[in-house]
Write a protein that binds this DNA or RNA. Structure first.
Lengths: 142, 142
DNA sequence: TATTGTTATACTCTATAACTATA
DNA sequence: TATAGTTATAGAGTATAACAATA
C-alpha cells in the first residue's frame, strides 16, 4: 500500500476537471435539444450499432427496465425505432431514424464547436500530443 | 464557418471517451457509498468552501429548489450541515460535517486508486506532460 | 421591492420485483 | 426452464411557479 504522490493527485484532479467541463458541455448541447445526457449517449451508441435492448443496457451500465423507458421516450420523439430481431422473436433491436441520425450529427458538430476554443489554446502539435497521450492511457492497443 | 478537421474530431472523441470513463468511475465510487454523482460533487465542493445555497446551485448549474432537496438528503445522512449566515439572516451556509469530510477523503483516495492502473500506462514524464496539457487547455493562466 | 431559500408539483432517470412471450 | 423485454412501483434528480422571511 504505497502512498500516492502529489503528482498522481494532480493528474487525477486535472482529469476530473476536464471531465466535468466535457460533461457540462454535453449537457448543454443535450438541453438545446431537450435531451438528457443519457439520451444523448443512447443516440451516440446507435450511430455505429443496432443493438438489442439488453446490449444497450449493458453498454450503458443500466437495467433492462430502465432502457424500456429511455427507448420509449426517444421512440415517441421519432429519434429511434424498435424492430423484432430476425434471429430471435423475443429480442428487440434498436436503431436510429434518419431524424435521429441528423440530430447526432448536429450534436457532434456542436460539441466540436464548443470545445474548439479550448483546444485552440494548444498548438497543433500539442493537440496531437494530448490526443496521443489520452488514447494511450484510455485505449491501449497492445 | 470553416469545416472541422479530422484531427479536431479525434481529439474531441478522445476527450469524450476519457470523460465517460472518469464519470463511470466516479459513479461507481458514489454507488459504493450510496451517493449519486451530484451528491459527490456537492461534497467535493464543500471540501474547500462554505457556500450559501444559491452559490452552491450556481456552481453546479442547478436551481435553488433542486439544491434544497440535495442538501436535505445529505444533511439527513449527517454528511453536511446548514447554518444561518452571520451576515444575512435570509442566507443559509452549507458545510461538511466531520463524517462528510472523511467520506470525501476516502472518495478521493478511491478515485486515485481506480485511475492509477490507467495513468501507469504512461511514463512519469508523459504523465506530467498530460497534466500540463490538460491544465493549459482547461485552466489557462494567462 | 428585491433577494434567499423552501414548498408544491411534474417529469425524467434509475432500480427491484413481478409478469408475458418466446426459446 | 431460461431468456428478452415490459410493466408496476418507488425514490432521487431536475425544473417551474408560488410562497415566506428578511433585507
Amino acid at each position: 500500500m504505497e502512498p500516492r504522490t502529489t503528482e498522481d493527485d494532480d493528474l487525477v484532479d486535472a482529469l476530473v476537471r476536464v471531465s466535468f467541463v466535457v460533461m457540462a458541455t454535453l449537457n448543454t448541447i443535450g438541453a438545446e435539444n431537450d435531451l438528457s445526457l443519457t439520451q444523448l449517449r443512447v443516440l451516440g451508441i446507435l450511430r455505429e450499432r443496432r443493438p438489442r435492448m439488453a446490449e444497450l443496457a449493458k453498454h450503458l451500465g443500466l437495467k433492462k427496465s430502465t432502457m424500456t423507458g429511455l427507448v420509449d421516450r426517444a421512440e415517441q420523439r421519432g429519434l429511434l425505432a424498435r424492430a423484432t430481431s430476425a434471429d430471435d422473436d423475443r429480442a428487440t433491436e434498436v436503431f436510429l431514424t434518419s431524424e435521429g441520425a441528423k440530430l447526432v450529427a448536429r450534436g457532434r458538430a456542436r460539441l466540436a464547436e464548443e470545445l474548439a476554443p479550448l483546444s485552440r489554446r494548444l498548438s497543433p502539435s500539442d493537440q496531437r500530443k494530448l490526443q496521443t497521450l489520452l488514447e494511450q492511457m484510455f485505449e491501449p492497443e497492445e
